[in-house]
Design a protein around this nucleic acid. Structure first.
Lengths: 150, 150
DNA sequence: CCGCATCCGGTAAGATACTG
DNA sequence: CAGTATCTTACCGGATGCGG
C-alpha cells in the first residue's frame, strides 16, 4: 500500500488502517499540544464562531471555567499562534481576542467535532432529532475552510 | 429540559460567524466529554489507525502514559461507545480493542487534526516540507468517512 | 466594572510495584 | 498480558481580592 520511503516507518505498514503513509512525527499528537487541553477548543469556538471576544464574556459562555484557567488557556492559545489580541485599551480596560489565520484554519477541527456530535446526539441537539450534515450547519466560508484540506 | 427550536437563539445571530444556526446544546462541548480528555484522541488513533489493539502496545505507543491512566481512558471510551473489546481470552490473557461504528465515525475528527497539523508543522512532518492534503494522507475509506459528514 | 492574581480544597494524572 | 494498588504531584474548580 505504501511505497514512500521518505517517511520513516517504525512499524509494519500492513498494520495501518486508513492512512496511506506514516509521518515522521504524529501531527495529531503535535497539534493536540495546546488544542487538546481542557476548555481550549471551547474557547476557540467562542472566539471564532460565537464571537465572544472578551474575557468576561468567555467566562460567562463557559459555565464552570474559572478566571485562572481561562487566563492560562488564552495565553497557551496565543503562544500556539491560534489567537491574538485584536484590541487593547484602558479606562475602561478592554481586551478583545480574535483568531489568527492559523486559528481560522483550526475551525474545521471544531466543525468535524460538531458533525460527529450532530450524528450521535441529534435527539439532544435538534427538536426534530434529524442529524444534520456540515453544510446545513455551517455557511460557505466555513465549508471552504474544510475543502482546502481535502 | 429546555424547549428550544433549532433556530432560536439566546444571542444575536449577527454575532455568529460560520454557523448557520444555533444548537439547543453545543455539540462540540457534548462530544468533547470523553474525547476531549488527555490521551483520549491518541488512544483512538492508535486503535483505529495504527492498529495497536492491545494494552501493552498502547502503552508503548504513547510514551508518558501510565497503565493507570490508560485503563481509565479505555473504560471511558468504552462507556462513550467509541471502542469495544473485540476479543477476551485467558491463559494466555489477551484483550483486543477495536473501534465501534461510532468510533469509526470519529476518525474524521482525527483526520482534520492531522490535516491542520500537516499544514502548520509540514517542516517537521515531511522531508520535502510540503504540506499534504487529506487525500494524500488517507485512503479512500477514510475520505468516505469525511464525505459522509459534508 | 474588567482583567486578571492569590489562596485553597478536591480531583485527575504521574511513578512504581504488584497480582490474577 | 492486562490491568490494580498505593503514593505523590500537578492541575482544576471556587471564592475572593486588587489594580486600572
Amino acid at each position: 500500500v505504501v511505497e514512500v520511503t521518505e517517511f520513516q516507518s517504525t512499524h509494519n505498514d500492513s498494520e495501518l488502517a486508513y492512512l496511506k503513509l506514516r509521518f515522521a512525527e504524529c501531527p495529531i499528537k503535535t497539534t493536540l499540544g495546546a488544542l487538546g487541553k481542557k476548555w481550549a477548543m471551547l474557547i476557540l469556538r467562542d472566539i471564532g464562531i460565537y464571537k465572544k471576544e472578551r474575557f468576561n464574556r468567555l467566562l460567562k459562555s463557559n459555565p464552570g471555567i474559572t478566571p485562572r484557567v481561562l487566563a492560562t488557556r488564552l495565553k497557551e492559545l496565543e503562544t500556539a499562534g491560534l489567537i491574538q489580541t485584536v484590541e487593547k485599551r484602558r479606562s475602561p480596560m478592554v481586551v478583545r481576542w480574535g483568531l489568527t489565520q492559523k486559528g481560522i484554519d483550526a475551525i474545521p477541527i471544531l466543525m468535524m467535532v460538531a458533525a460527529f456530535g450532530s450524528k450521535y446526539e441529534a435527539e439532544k441537539l435538534f427538536v426534530d432529532k434529524r442529524p444534520r450534515k456540515l453544510h446545513e450547519l455551517f455557511n460557505r466560508d466555513a465549508m471552504d475552510l474544510v475543502r482546502q484540506f481535502l
